[in-house]
């Protein structure tokens, strides 16, 4: 079954920049996919389209078989609850503890307090940051903060996890730890889509690689490498 499907999707921004050109792509449930390419090749646009932060200009996008293009705006929150997001800059709230940052996701979707108290420690153990549960983000290293951000994206157990350059700010050793966590999450059955230009990571993981260049897919390879 296709978890994500792009059918002839194009995105042209208001200033006439063509970000994506006639994209056709199928991502199966439980797949781990690297989206690679230089800056400005359309990786971020790809991810923003999936969470409907922006609207496609042409084509259709299907998630779990449902066309999200004509989704009403009041259904967008529901869509986003099924897609976890991890970013290069972590986007943690500085005035909330690690527990509160992760609990935030569950509060927002109206989970009762007792469930939050069970689920948050669970996911913090999964990403290996449980010992910092009462710390604040600024007391943590970059790698630790990214773990928290993954925990926040995954605490709700969404079927899809999007990661936009999650290792962009981290050193190679720390990045490796982050990749282990993403692999683990993928093993549980989550579809993971990661945009990156970290050559070493892509080469060591040997997963499906889709390469974008100037908004077009120029390569789609199973067990691929970063390329030249």
């Amino acid at each position: 079954m296709n978890m994500i499907e792009f059918k002839q999707v194009s995105k042209i921004y208001e200033d006439n920049t063509v970000a994506l050109k006639n994209i056709n792509l199928e991502i199966k449930k439980g797949e781990f996919l690297f989206l690679v390419g230089p800056s400005g090749s359309g990786k971020s646009t790809f991810i923003k389209l999936l969470i409907k932060e922006i609207e496609e200009t042409e084509g259709s996008i299907f998630i779990a078989g449902r066309n999200i293009c004509n989704l009403k705006s009041n259904r967008i929150p529901q869509l986003r609850r099924n897609i976890g997001c991890v970013f290069q800059d972590f986007k943690l709230l500085p005035n909330k503890t690690i527990f509160e940052n992760v609990a935030f996701t569950l509060e927002v979707i109206g989970k009762p307090v007792y469930e939050i108290k069970i689920q948050v420690p669970q996911v913090l153990k999964l990403v290996g940051i449980f010992s910092k549960i009462n710390s604040y983000p600024h007391q943590l290293s970059g790698g630790e903060q990214q773990r928290v951000s993954i925990a926040r994206a995954f605490v709700n157990r969404p079927p899809i996890l999007l990661a936009d350059e999650p290792t962009g700010n981290l050193d190679p050793g720390t990045s490796e730890g982050i990749m282990k966590i993403l692999s683990r999450i993928n093993l549980i059955g989550t579809t993971v889509l990661m945009a990156t230009h970290d050559r070493n990571i892509v080469n060591s993981m040997r997963r499906r690689v889709v390469e974008l260049e100037e908004g077009e897919i120029i390569r789609d390879q199973k067990r691929g490498v970063y390329g030249d």
Binding site: Q78, R81, L93, T105, V108
Partner: peptide, 16 residues
């Protein structure tokens, strides 16, 4: 605004 951005990201409804 950061908090609002995160709220929307994790699927908060407009009213929330």
């Amino acid at each position: 605004r950061k908090e609002i951005e995160v709220m929307k990201l994790v699927g908060a409804t407009n009213w929330f």
